[in-house]
């Protein structure tokens, strides 16, 4: 306060300052004196200081409690509003970006899932064709009893071809041999004992049971046609029973044949 710094009150206040008989008095003495022997003149100062303390406390309180915006200046409020709308804009942009990312991820996932299910179907079909997995489904069971031993490899091959022609998807003989593309039929001529029935190196025993999965009616009809398998069987006075079944279990499998020489042609 300039008015305090300048000695505009030249005469000493003896009552406040203490005994006037001490000509040189330090500020500290004066303060101690004022605290020890307060005078009436301090009352006014006390009132002022009380006002100051009161308003300071109130201000601190209201600042602590100021969670809302009353009392702010108009320009500050405008600034706050601008900041808020900018933040909202940013948040909206973020939302848009994230939604785009989400939808692209979703479509990505869908197409991946579609590709995976396609590939799985293909793998299943190929596995059944290659005979590497057990298969089940509707089909027929042909039981051939040949007491006179007249059934040869030719008739059997004929039966297999007719079944394949009729759309058999999986074929099994005697619950032991799975018939696939690589299946080889042998009548034992190479080994010097013709007349046997050897399928994939496994000699078949009677009765011959051929199980095939496919449309049962179509398969049965294919065997029954004129000059077909059943007629051939009858000619050699053997018996063949064809049963159409709702469910045929083909349990035997083949090892996965890895091609040693053939490689797929990359086709673009």
């Amino acid at each position: 306060m300039p008015e305090h710094e300048q000695p505009d009150q030249p005469e000493r206040d003896d009552t406040v300052a203490g005994a006037g008989d001490q000509p040189v008095e330090t500020g500290r003495d004066r303060l101690v004196q004022a605290i020890r022997k307060p005078t009436r003149r301090q009352v006014g100062v006390a009132v002022i200081l009380a006002i100051l303390g009161f308003s300071a406390a109130v201000q601190v309180r209201s600042t602590e409690a100021a969670t809302t915006y009353p009392g702010m200046r108009q320009e500050d409020l405008v600034q706050v509003l601008n900041n808020l709308s900018a933040a909202a804009q940013r948040a909206e942009n973020d939302i848009n970006q994230l939604e785009q990312a989400q939808s692209s991820l979703l479509s990505n996932r869908d197409s991946r899932a579609a590709a995976i299910s396609r590939a799985r179907e293909q793998a299943d079909a190929l596995a059944i064709l290659a005979g590497t997995v057990p298969a089940t489904g509707p089909g027929i069971r042909v039981t051939v009893t040949d007491e006179s031993g007249q059934i040869k490899i030719d008739q059997l091959l004929n039966a297999l071809q007719e079944l394949r022609d009729a759309g058999a998807e999986a074929i099994e003989i005697n619950d032991a041999v799975r018939v696939v593309a690589q299946t080889a039929l042998d009548d034992g001529t190479a080994a010097g004992e013709p007349g046997r029935i050897i399928v994939d190196g496994q000699e078949l025993a009677q009765p011959y049971v051929i199980e095939a999965i496919g449309n049962p009616q179509t398969l049965a009809t294919a065997l029954e046609i004129f000059g077909g398998f059943l007629e051939q069987v009858e000619q050699v006075s053997a018996r063949a029973v064809v049963k159409e079944l709702d469910e045929v279990e083909i349990a035997s499998v083949r090892e996965i044949a890895t091609s040693e020489y053939a490689t797929p042609v990359e086709d673009e």
Partner: peptide, 23 residues
């Protein structure tokens, strides 16, 4: 107000304090 109070305290220590001036 704080400024006024500190100014007053300084003036008091200088020995030139006056309560009317302070008010």
């Amino acid at each position: 107000a704080l400024d006024a109070v500190f100014g007053a305290l300084r003036a008091f220590l200088d020995g030139i304090f006056d309560d009317k001036v302070f008010v």
